[in-house]
């Protein structure tokens, strides 16, 4: 990518092309999610499952098309660190919620005022 000034984007893969694809996917998923929640056509539990899947797809699309993370060798360290971070986040968030919801369920309801 060194000194080929104006020709840079005309050879091989155009970085803008990938950005347009990522933007279109993100836009479509955002419209879909907001539309689904605001219209309330599905039961709220079903809606939440669908919007979480849509969010996961959008995060994946943005990592892939905006940040260009993939399995190529130049990206290996970046991807490894990302996977490690996802494991830490899964432990941190998953176990926090597990502990706190169990604590909540096991607590006897306390009458607030008498």
């Amino acid at each position: 990518m060194s000194a080929n000034h104006s020709h840079a984007a005309n050879h091989g893969e155009n970085p803008l092309r990938s950005h347009v694809i990522g933007f279109a996917i993100s836009l479509a998923l955002t419209f879909f999610s907001f539309g689904l929640v605001m219209s309330g056509v599905l039961a709220s539990s079903t809606t939440l499952v669908v919007v979480v899947i849509a969010a996961a797809m959008q995060v994946f699309a943005q990592f892939h098309y905006f940040l260009h993370l993939d399995s190529s060798s130049t990206q290996r360290m970046n991807v490894m660190v990302l996977i490690y971070t996802i494991v830490i986040i899964a432990i941190l968030v998953g176990l926090s919620l597990w502990i706190m919801y169990n604590t909540h369920i096991r607590m006897m309801p306390i009458p607030m005022a008498r």
Binding site: A9, H11, G12, P15, F66, H68, S72, Q75, N78
Partner: peptide, 9 residues
């Protein structure tokens, strides 16, 4: 020649 955000120099 892939133009990438993370590895472009």
């Amino acid at each position: 020649m892939s133009s990438t955000t993370l590895t472009d120099h």
